[in-house]
Design a protein around this nucleic acid. Structure first.
Length: 450
DNA sequence: AGCACA
């Protein structure tokens, strides 16, 4: 026979089949629910759920064609539509005569998860955020990310299938907590299946892949230049070349932002060499200089979109400056060179802040060995997003297994589970003059407490 | 709300 395929895509009358196609199902509809639905009409011999791009379609196959016809006929004339969990589902004959269950991967539990990140800004989700999210369920060995037709995806490797399963059960279909992302990143939903992989091959630490079991793995050369693809302007602005100097714009500046405040905030990520503050179009801006690009990248990633003060005040917007070395003519309340011994001018540099054991950074082979990447002052691995923030990770340890030298989280602003609504990722500052008394119970941002 | 997957 030649082709029969010139039919319209959607036919309103279809030849009967003992297989029915169901749509508009609720998320995560189970086989049991499908069987319940079909049982009154006959024997359901097979089902397939979570079908389609939205995974809200399914098939049920009856033992006998007449049973399928009975079900279609019933709902065709019923005043009550077919429902699953109160949601109307639409039924029609499938254009196939039987369900083929390719139960190969995807349904066989394994230690590696295939994660699809859905959402407008899915590719702005950094591998570090993913690491943080999944670390709530156990030690994450490796992560690789890639783009497929399905979108932005990641493979996340755990020690065992049990851990992977707990993560999958808790996270599948959930969004990445807002407080892990900058304000203006659209919500990102996680779709999780099992991968057939058991051990990912990670050759380099890069912005696409990480091996947390091997901190000495070389860093991909591309990671140095290519990282900014994940530091895209939040509204899709073009790439800026990375720099060791950050340009900070401060929005909604209801409270004073002093040089010392900036110094404290930015010192959490590495030694701040110089700061210059100035006004631009009535808004405060500042240039913050680090000794190396990597530190600036980390600081930018962690701070972008966050607010210095609780309540959405003094929100930081960061970009890379074209400067590489600021010229500070004199130390005053708007500019400071921390690399030269200060004559005791105004406030000498806040004690402890300049005292961090700062190793020389910038050796490419050690870029990801943790000590450098993790913000100083963050002596502990960060608190993970607590499942109670909405993920039903019952019985799952919310604390990530302590990890050896590796990248822990870089985002020092993870609020505890009690603050599930921290959608704009605020941080608290130690009291400074003119600072409103913080009201929340957020963990303190204490860059000066080692 | 519109046909599966490797």
């Amino acid at each position: 026979m030649a082709s029969v395929s010139s039919q319209p895509q959607f036919r309103y009358t279809q030849p009967p089949s003992k297989v029915l196609h169901l749509r508009n199902l609720p998320w995560e509809c189970t086989e049991e629910e499908l069987i319940e639905l079909g049982k009154p009409f006959g024997k359901v011999v097979n089902t397939k759920c979570n079908v389609g791009a939205n995974r809200n379609q399914a098939f049920i196959e009856f033992a006998d064609l007449n049973q399928a016809i009975a079900m279609i006929s019933y709902y065709a004339s019923s005043s009550e539509p077919a429902q699953v969990r109160g949601k109307t589902v639409y039924l029609q004959y499938s254009n196939r005569q039987e369900i083929v269950n390719n139960k190969t991967t995807a349904d066989i539990a394994g230690n590696v998860l295939l994660v699809t990140i859905e959402g407008q800004d899915a590719r702005l989700v950094s591998i570090d955020v993913l690491h943080l999210v999944f670390s709530a369920f156990g030690f994450v060995h490796k992560i690789t990310t890639f783009e497929k037709t399905a979108g932005f995806q990641a493979l996340v490797q755990f020690s065992d299938a049990e851990t992977a399963t707990s993560a999958k059960n808790a996270l599948d279909g959930r969004i990445i907590p807002r407080y892990l992302l900058s304000d203006n990143i659209a919500p990102c939903t996680l779709r999780i299946t099992y991968s057939a992989h058991t051990d990912l091959s990670v050759k380099f630490q890069s912005h696409r892949s990480r091996d947390y079991t091997n901190p000495y793995l070389p860093v991909a050369p591309s990671a140095i230049d290519g990282s900014s693809q994940f530091n895209l302007g939040l509204d899709g602005k073009k790439l800026e070349p990375e720099s060791n100097v950050l340009l900070a714009s401060i929005e909604n500046m209801q409270y004073a932002v002093t040089l010392d405040v900036l110094h404290m905030v930015f010192s959490a990520f590495g030694p701040v060499q110089k700061i210059a503050m100035f006004d631009k179009n009535g808004a405060l801006q500042a240039l913050i200089q680090y000794p190396d690009v990597q530190t600036a990248i980390v600081a930018k990633e962690a701070l972008e979109g966050h607010c210095i003060y609780d309540g959405g005040f003094c929100k930081l917007h960061l970009s890379y400056s074209r400067h590489t070395d600021l010229s500070i003519k004199l130390n005053n309340d708007r500019s400071r060179d921390y690399t030269i011994a200060n004559p005791p001018l105004v406030n000498p540099q806040p004690s402890a802040l300049g005292q961090q054991p700062i190793q020389t950074m910038g050796q490419a082979s050690h870029q990801y060995n943790g000590t450098q990447y993790a913000a100083p002052g963050m002596g502990q691995p960060m608190m993970p997003p607590q499942p109670s923030a909405g993920w039903g990770a019952s019985g799952v340890s919310a604390v990530p297994q302590s990890m050896p030298a590796q990248m822990t989280n870089h985002n020092p602003y993870i609020p505890p589970a009690s603050m599930p609504q921290m959608s704009h990722g605020m941080m608290q500052m130690p009291g400074q003059s003119g600072v409103p008394p913080p009201t929340s119970s957020m963990p303190h941002f204490r860059p000066n407490h080692m």
